[in-house]
């Protein structure tokens, strides 16, 4: 985790959202987000070709207690 990484994220947020870092805590929090991105990258390969968000509602119905 480098200052260069968080600076790049801060610049990207400004470029794509027009939002500047509101305070030092926001910059500090970006390090936490970099850790999250790293963790999410570790999940690569899990998503199936047909998976989509609506599969959640289907799973809720399918996984109910059986009488």
């Amino acid at each position: 985790m480098t200052t260069e990484d968080t600076s790049a994220m801060e610049a990207a947020i400004d470029r794509w959202n027009g939002i500047a870092a509101p305070n030092q805590a926001a910059r500090a929090g970006l390090a936490d987000h970099l850790a999250l991105i790293t963790a999410f990258e570790a999940l690569r390969g899990m998503l199936g070709f047909e998976d989509e968000p609506a599969s959640f509602e289907a799973a809720l119905r399918a996984e109910q207690e059986k009488a």
Binding site: A12, I13, W16, A21, P22, N23, A25, A26, A28
Partner: peptide, 11 residues
Amino acid sequence: LSARLFGGYAL
């Protein structure tokens, strides 16, 4: 809160 929200724009 603004700090917490800020990182969400980087995902």
